[in-house]
C-alpha cells in the first residue's frame, strides 16, 4: 500500500482532571497528502488543538492519557519516537504556528535571536550564517531586516504573527500545524497574514493542518475540511463536498447559525442547547441531545459508524440521508 504523508488513525486521548476523565479526542482518523491543506473546524472544546498538539507530542505529561491510535508521519509512528528523536523533528520537518502571537514569543529576547535559535538548533552552521538565514526569513515574511534586533513589544500584533511564522518556517518544514493563526488579528491584517502563509507554504510545497473556528478562513485556504464535535470528526470531505452537501446535522446547524453577508434574515437559526460536557458524554451520538432528527437508535450505547456519502466524503450520522435538506 502506498505510504501516506500524514496519517492519523483512531487517535483517542483522555485527560484526567479533578478525578473525572475528560474524553478530549475520540477515535479520530484522517490523512493529509503532501502539499494539501486540511482545515479542522469546530467550536471551543471540540478537541481541535489537542489533535495538533498530539501530532507534535507536546501534550502535558501530567494528566494526559493516550488511549490508542497511531500518528504516522512519512511512515514513522510519532507516538513511538523518543524525546530526542522528536526534538529533531519539531520546528524542523513539522512546525507549529500558535494562536496568540503575544504569548508565543519570548518578551525578553530579540526577535532575531528567537529565529536564529531555531536554525542553529537544527542545522550545523555557524552563528553568523544562521543569522543571515534568519534575516532572509524575516524579509520573506514581510518585515524589514533592520528590525532584527528589536524586541516583541516593539511590534504590532500582525507583525508579531509574522515573526512567529518566520520561526515556524525557518527550517523549511514539510508539515505546518497552524492553530488559529489569525484569530487574534483584525480582518485586514488577517487577510495579509493568510496570504503570506499561503504563498510561503506553496513555495515549500508543504502540507498544512489549519485549526480554526472561522468558517470564512477555512473557505479561503483549505482543500479538505474535517468538522469536529465533542472530540470526534463527525464529517469530512473536500471543501466543495462539505459546502455543497453538508450531511451531518451539526455541520448544517453550524452553517445555518452564521449571519450571512448577502442574505437578509430577521432571525438566525442557532443550534438549540449546548455542546456536551466532555467528562460526561452522552451515549451513542454526542450530538443526539441537540439533534432535531435523533431517534432511539442514535442514543444506543455504541459508537456511530463512519458512513460514506460519496467518494472522499464521510459522515458519522445514522440518518444522514434524511438529514439532507
Amino acid at each position: 500500500m502506498e505510504e501516506k504523508f500524514l496519517e492519523v488513525k483512531n487517535l483517542t486521548i483522555d485527560f484526567t482532571s479533578a478525578g473525572s476523565i475528560v474524553h478530549a479526542v475520540n477515535d479520530v482518523s484522517f490523512t493529509l497528502d503532501r502539499g494539501k491543506v486540511l482545515g479542522l473546524i469546530g467550536e471551543t472544546g471540540a478537541g481541535k488543538s489537542v489533535v495538533a498538539k498530539a501530532i507534535l507530542q507536546i501534550l502535558p505529561d501530567h494528566g494526559t492519557k493516550i488511549r490508542g491510535g497511531e500518528i504516522l508521519f512519512e511512515g514513522k509512528d510519532l507516538m513511538k519516537l523518543k524525546e530526542d528523536q522528536l526534538m529533531k523533528i519539531r520546528g524542523n520537518a513539522i512546525s507549529m504556528i500558535f494562536q496568540d502571537p503575544m504569548t508565543a514569543l519570548n518578551p525578553i529576547m530579540r526577535i532575531g535571536t528567537q529565529i536564529t535559535e531555531v536554525i542553529t538548533h537544527h542545522k550545523k552552521i555557524s552563528k553568523a550564517d544562521a543569522e543571515k538565514e534568519a534575516m532572509a526569513m524575516l524579509e520573506k515574511v514581510g518585515i524589514p531586516s533592520e528590525r532584527f534586533r528589536e524586541y516583541p513589544h516593539q511590534f504590532s500584533g500582525g507583525m508579531k504573527q509574522r515573526v512567529v511564522c518566520a520561526m515556524a518556517l525557518a527550517c523549511n518544514p514539510v508539515l505546518l500545524l497552524a492553530d488559529e493563526p489569525t484569530t487574534a488579528l483584525d480582518v485586514t491584517i488577517q487577510a495579509q497574514v493568510l496570504k503570506m502563509i499561503s504563498d510561503l507554504r506553496k513555495e515549500l510545497n508543504a502540507s498544512m493542518l489549519i485549526i480554526t473556528h472561522d468558517i470564512g478562513v477555512v473557505s479561503k485556504v483549505c482543500d479538505d475540511i474535517a468538522i469536529m464535535y465533542a472530540g470526534q470528526i463527525i464529517e469530512k470531505g473536500s471543501k466543495k463536498q462539505i459546502f455543497s452537501n453538508p450531511s451531518h446535522p451539526y455541520t448544517q446547524g453550524l452553517f445555518a447559525a452564521l449571519p450571512s453577508m448577502n442574505e437578509d434574515v430577521e432571525y438566525l437559526h442557532p443550534i438549540e442547547g449546548l455542546p456536551p460536557d466532555p467528562a460526561n458524554l452522552p451515549k451513542g451520538c454526542p450530538f443526539a441531545p441537540r439533534c432535531p432528527r435523533a431517534t432511539d437508535e442514535c442514543r444506543m450505547d455504541k459508537p456511530i459508524p463512519v458512513t460514506m456519502v460519496e467518494e472522499g466524503h464521510t459522515t458519522k450520522c445514522l440518518r444522514y440521508k434524511e438529514a439532507r435538506t
Binding site: 478562513v217 473557505s219 479561503k220 471543501k239 453577508m261
Partner: peptide, 19 residues
C-alpha cells in the same frame, strides 16, 4: 474585501488586500 467569503466558491484567487 478582506473578509473571507464562506463557501466553496473561493478558489484562492487574488482579492485585493490592503497593505
Amino acid at each position: 474585501a478582506s473578509i473571507p467569503v464562506v463557501g466553496a466558491d473561493d478558489d484562492g484567487s487574488e482579492t485585493e488586500i490592503i497593505q
